[in-house]
């Protein structure tokens, strides 16, 4: 299908069930909340080797946070509750507890015991017996003495079902055109609530396929979309495409991922063929691995 001169392939993105949680991190200034959020969601691009996928969902105004200070909402995604709990605990302990002036709260409704993600529940032991807790409206908060005052941390968060691995592939005439298109699309997709784009700047250049010729490699380069291999029979790229970039989407529900996909498609189609975009497609594994299929034709704006 050609829309505004851009080829939209009749295919779908294949996404997986994941577990996620949201944390609200506040600090004295928006900048320090961002510092904590960036550190806590750093090295969290793909569950392949990072343990979890994470990102800053959005910045929060003081009136939106539990303690009335500026903050950020962070989303963390992992393959299961226990690995998510371990990742969140380590990241909060090393990146938020350590950051000046911060406090950390759960950003999801109270769940059941089986979905518990420990926060202050374990970090409180850093207080070495000087920690205090407060129970407000059925939620427990820990106050841990630290060198700049007190680290305030909710006792636990909860995991919620989520969807990870939604994606769009942008095919462009040149690398600069692909990058500009990807930046614009990522900006449009970030505006959708309940989603994060876990890769640097929201964009990934090393899309992967499952498996490799080498033993022990679970994934390897997506050679069908590598422009330097355009001459090979299995290449999916036409001669004029010189660069391909992918945007990966993790969301709390399939509807959120679909909304972000639509926002991305809308942005790309509006930019048109004149901006150097040749086409848009999506990555899948034949539909056998992931339960969620996001068909581009159904999600057109």
């Amino acid at each position: 299908m050609l829309l505004n001169g851009i080829h939209i392939e009749n295919t779908y993105a294949e996404a997986f069930d994941m577990k996620a949680t949201r944390l609200i991190v506040t600090a004295d200034t928006p900048a320090w909340a961002r510092h904590a959020g960036m550190a806590a969601t750093g090295f969290a691009t793909s569950v392949i080797a990072c343990g979890c996928e994470a990102g800053i969902e959005r910045e929060l105004a003081p009136e939106e946070t539990p303690d009335g200070r500026p903050g950020v909402a962070l989303l963390f995604f992992a393959t299961g509750r226990s690995v998510l709990g371990k990742q969140v605990e380590t990241r909060v302990g090393q990146c938020i507890l350590t950051c000046p002036g911060t406090a950390c709260f759960s950003g999801v409704p109270r769940g059941v015991k089986e979905d518990l993600i420990p926060l202050g529940r374990k970090l409180r032991y850093f207080g070495d017996g000087q920690q205090m807790s407060k129970l407000l409206c059925g939620r427990r908060y820990w106050r841990i003495p630290v060198m700049d005052g007190e680290f305030l941390c909710e006792e636990s968060s909860w995991s919620v079902p989520a969807v990870g691995g939604g994606n769009l592939l942008i095919l462009a005439d040149a690398r600069t055109a692909a990058l500009e298109a990807a930046e614009a699309a990522a900006d449009a997709m970030r505006a959708v609530p309940n989603v994060v784009l876990p890769f640097p700047g929201g964009v990934v250049r090393s899309g992967s396929k499952i498996g490799a010729k080498y033993k022990g490699m679970p994934a390897s380069t997506n050679d069908a979309y590598c422009p330097t291999l355009r001459g090979l029979p299995r290449s999916r790229l036409p001669a004029e495409v010189e660069s391909v970039l992918e945007i990966v989407i993790d969301g709390l529900t399939a509807a959120d991922v679909a909304a972000a996909t639509t926002a991305g498609l809308k942005c790309l189609i509006e930019r048109g063929r004149g901006s150097g975009i040749w086409g848009v497609t999506a990555g899948n594994y034949g539909g056998k691995l992931g339960r969620h299929h996001f068909h581009l034709y159904e999600l057109l704006p």
Partner: peptide
């Protein structure tokens, strides 16, 4: 001391 807990 300035305690974020008081605002909470």
């Amino acid at each position: 001391n300035r305690l974020p807990f008081l605002s909470l």
